[in-house]
């Protein structure tokens, strides 16, 4: 418990730092003295929404990864290695092409339905492979993602939408403003639902027979989990784009330290996810000021490096 409080304090400190890092000069002094209306505006319209978005997206994606890992019973699965994220991008493209007038919430729901379909397809392929090694599962997911991405890009290419698709594919928080990130609160609500159902997911992670033996409906647990994961992923992609490997590395690192009882580990995963995304985004804002490096790129480096570490570490009990 003390550890959790410390971790929460760390996230809050990072969030506070995030409020005061950026091109415009916003400091506590200028805000309190009220000397600069502009600074207060920047804080309210851009910095606070951005910081909230970072926390919510980070926690949501990390928890989504954790749930998917339980459901697929594999440590190397997360929305970007299970076809979920790529399918959500496909959904965003479709709704933008076919019904451009749709409101943000509607777009997100369509993307969520597509993400769900993609993830179900992924689990269906896994089901048809009787002898599966732990490492083939993410391989199948990554390849399924590549195929879906190719379809998306072909359609996008035909209708001159490649720019938008690229934006959904690479996470970037620089465009987050008030009024354009609130979908993520839905993701936060879903994360809370996930916490309430944490024990069920832990049981589902032990296998179908085990779940049935304990009197739970395995199908229903899986459906709930997939709906949460799909909607959270869709909300994140609609707001700021894909954040690669976050849902993979955070739960794995926490699992090394805290084990796999989801009721205990989920708060850690959420906090750590939020903290990592905050740190990466702040770093991206600082390195080449006044320009920014999008989080998709920084997380691509950090995430793949940690993923490699997890894969290559000597005694791999994760696999």
């Amino acid at each position: 418990m003390r550890g959790l409080v410390l971790a929460a304090a760390g996230v809050i400190a990072l969030a506070a730092a995030s409020l005061f890092v950026g091109v415009s000069d916003v400091t506590i002094g200028t805000i309190l003295s009220g000397s600069s209306d502009e600074a207060t505006q920047v804080l309210l319209v851009s910095r606070i929404p951005r910081t909230f978005a970072l926390v919510l997206a980070g926690a949501g994606m990390a928890v989504s990864g954790l749930i998917l890992q339980m459901l697929a019973r594999n440590k190397f699965v997360e929305p970007s290695t299970a076809g979920t994220a790529e399918s959500a991008v496909f959904g965003m493209l479709m709704v933008t092409l076919l019904a451009p007038e749709t409101a943000m919430l509607g777009r997100m729901l369509v993307a969520g339905v597509c993400a769900l379909a993609g993830t179900v397809l992924f689990l269906g392929i896994l089901r048809r492979m009787p002898l599966r090694s732990p490492l083939i599962v993410p391989l199948v997911g990554i390849m399924l993602g590549a195929v879906i991405t190719a379809s998306t890009e072909f359609v996008a290419y035909r209708f001159d939408m490649l720019q938008s698709v690229r934006a959904w594919e690479t996470g970037d928080f620089s465009g987050v403003l008030r009024g354009r990130y609130e979908l993520l609160w839905i993701g936060a609500a879903l994360t809370a639902v996930a916490y309430a159902a944490a024990d069920r997911f832990t049981v589902a992670g032990l296998g179908e027979d085990f779940t049935t033996n304990l009197g739970l409906n395995h199908r229903r647990v899986v459906s709930l989990g997939l709906i949460i994961v799909s909607l959270v992923t869709a909300a994140v992609i609609a707001t700021c784009g894909m954040i690669p490997f976050l849902g993979l590395i955070v739960p794995n690192l926490i699992s090394l330290m805290r084990g796999d009882n989801m009721r205990l580990s989920l708060p850690w995963v959420a906090l750590f996810g939020a903290g990592l995304v905050l740190a990466c985004d702040i770093a991206g804002r600082l390195v080449i000021r006044p320009y920014e490096i999008p989080i998709g790129t920084t997380m691509g480096i950090v995430g793949s490096a940690i993923f490699l570490y997890l894969l290559l570490r000597k005694n791999r009990h994760a696999a």
Binding site: F76, S133, P134, L135, I136, P138, L139, I142, P244, F245, T297, T298, G300, I301, G303, S304, A305, F307, L308, L311, L312, A319
Partner: peptide
């Protein structure tokens, strides 16, 4: 499978870098 996965992730790392 480990080799393949490591290769793919290295690819992502190189691209991100």
């Amino acid at each position: 499978h480990l080799l393949m996965l490591v290769g793919i992730v290295f690819g992502v790392l190189f691209r991100s870098l």
